[in-house]
């Protein structure tokens, strides 16, 4: 067990050290989300009606959830490269804990997610976002974001192991996750959507997580959204983590 922990840390460190040598990735984690916040806040902000809230307050929890969900794409890229470039073989001939390859990837995502979350929050506060919450709820919100992000790392892990190249991992990831985040309460009130879309948006886990974040950070009426968000995150993990592990075994045993 201690071997699993130490090997996971070694591989997390390796995955994170990539940020130093690949500035494009660092930009993806820092500059890109900030750009999205600014564009949405100032380009769409004036046109979107969000009864009860300033658009910036409405937007920030939504855009942070979207950003965190995408955080796992580095896992998809990295795992795909490890498999296609044969590094998995190197790992598998070492006397290391097998699970550390996936654990190290997803753990590294937690660190990068936290990094971009802090940058986003700083940006949000600068452009006028204000919490309507106590310290406990703010921290609980960050915890929920990390949990949801970790769950999505497993979705991306599976994706990275299924596709043939890092490029297709990237584009498929966007194709799958982008519409999900937009057909939710992240950017516009669900009530403003046409019937079918509104129905989908209501049951979309993104809506549930975004509503939970608004409940925690803006004191919005939550219903069961906070528990629902935790349960959704756990369900996503319970489905995708075993699938990713199984796929990893198959990919490695070719």
């Amino acid at each position: 067990m201690s071997r699993l922990v130490s090997d996971t840390l070694v591989l997390s460190e390796r995955n994170l050290s990539r940020l130093r040598t690949a500035p494009d990735l660092l930009i993806a984690f820092t500059v890109q989300p900030v750009m999205f916040v600014l564009l949405f806040a100032f380009v769409f902000g004036g046109a979107i009606q969000t009864p009860g809230y300033d658009y910036i307050d409405f937007l920030i929890p939504g855009i942070i959830v979207q950003n965190i969900a995408f955080g796992g794409f580095v896992t998809a890229l990295g795992l795909n490269e490890d498999v296609t470039k044969g590094l998995i073989d190197r790992f598998r001939t070492l006397p290391m804990a097998r699970a550390a390859v996936l654990a190290g990837r997803t753990l590294a995502d937690v660190v990068t997610n936290l990094l971009s979350l802090l940058i986003l929050l700083a940006t949000a506060l600068i452009i006028g976002f204000s919490f309507d919450a106590g310290a406990g709820e703010i921290v609980a919100g960050i915890g929920l974001l990390m949990l949801f992000g970790y769950a999505f790392s497993w979705v991306f892990a599976l994706l990275g192991l299924m596709v043939s190249s890092p490029e297709s991992a990237n584009s498929l990831g966007f194709l799958a996750v982008f519409p999900l985040t937009f057909i939710s309460s992240a950017f516009v009130p669900v009530e403003s959507m046409p019937g079918g879309l509104a129905w989908f948006a209501e049951i979309n886990p993104f809506t549930i997580v975004v509503d939970a974040m608004r409940a925690l950070w803006l004191d919005a009426p939550a219903g069961n959204a906070v528990w629902g968000a935790v349960v959704w995150s756990l369900v996503i993990m319970a489905i995708f983590a075993p699938l990713a592990v199984r796929r990893y075994r198959l990919a490695a045993a070719r």
Binding site: R14, S17, R18, T21, K85, G86, L87, R90, T93, P95
Partner: peptide, 30 residues
């Protein structure tokens, strides 16, 4: 696995790590 080494036809090195970084990583995984 403690007693064998494998070098393959597709050089299995982490391109994003330095040469030394690669060897340190492998050593620590041993």
């Amino acid at each position: 696995r403690e007693r064998i080494g494998l070098a393959g036809q597709y050089a299995a090195v982490d391109e994003n790590l330095t040469g030394l970084g690669n060897l340190i990583m492998v050593g620590r995984l041993y």
